[in-house]
């Protein structure tokens, strides 16, 4: 038998596109990944993320650094920013949001321009970390600053302490909270003499001569951590 209309019409005269993609991510569903033209990624951000991916044997390793880059660009990991990073990295936005939401320093909700993390963990708590946090929260009222209590920041030697825009300061007095916020608002150097960087090694300092102040006696309610500011 032979077909009636136009036997074996084929269309070979358009070029064949070939893509060889060694180094693939097995099976990722391309359908779920936004395409670059849909996300409007600023070129600097795109280049930066591509540079980050190039540092690792597997591009996925760049997801935390890429999210840092998004956060730097937009102030927090905005859904649009995550989509942009996902399009550049070729992962689903959900992949990246899942990562971002795991880590305390990556914010998936809006936060202020400045960020202050006040340690309220054991050593800082013993030395007034809670009061310090309260002082910061009070001083930061209305300012463009995101203030949170935080778990141990690895600086118990300067307890009670806080990390202000990713730099450590301590030991801090409650009164210094307001100073720090004023300095932040004014764009000035924050508490220069309380910066960790300026501190000598413990054993190189003379024994303390300070007086001993009696602690305030009270029973603070400590359920419900103070989070956000």
């Amino acid at each position: 038998m032979s077909p009636v209309d136009g036997a074996g019409i084929s269309n070979p005269n358009l070029p064949v596109d070939i893509a060889v993609t060694k180094g693939r991510v097995p099976g990722r569903s391309e359908e779920q990944i936004p395409e670059l033209h849909e996300v409007d990624c600023p070129p600097e951000l795109r280049e930066r993320i591509e540079g980050l991916m190039a540092r690792y044997p597997d591009r996925r390793s760049a997801s935390i650094p890429a999210l840092w880059a998004v956060q730097e660009r937009y102030g927090w990991c905005t859904p649009d920013g995550i989509r942009q990073a996902a399009a550049v990295m070729r992962f689903t936005p959900a992949d990246l949001e899942s990562v971002a939401s795991f880590y305390d320093l990556l914010h998936t909700d809006p936060v202020g321009t400045h960020r202050i993390e006040v340690c309220t963990n054991i050593s800082c708590w013993m030395r007034g970390g809670d009061e310090l946090l309260d002082a910061f929260v009070a001083a930061g009222e209305g300012a463009d600053v995101h203030i949170t209590g935080f778990e141990c920041l690895g600086a118990c030697d300067i307890a009670p302490m806080a990390s202000i825009d990713q730099r450590y300061y301590g030991p801090l007095e409650a009164a210094e909270a307001a100073t720090a916020i004023e300095q932040l608002n004014a764009g000035a150097d924050v508490l220069p003499d309380k910066a960790l960087a300026a501190r000598p090694l413990a054993g190189d300092t003379p024994p303390p001569t300070g007086r001993n102040r009696e602690p305030e006696s009270r029973n603070r309610p400590i359920d419900g951590e103070v989070r956000g500011g």
Partner: peptide, 20 residues
Amino acid sequence: EAGMPIAIVQGAPEALGAAT
């Protein structure tokens, strides 16, 4: 004794801050 005052906060920073 919950509700009674209990000291839980140890020292004020300036007492210890001489190190800086």
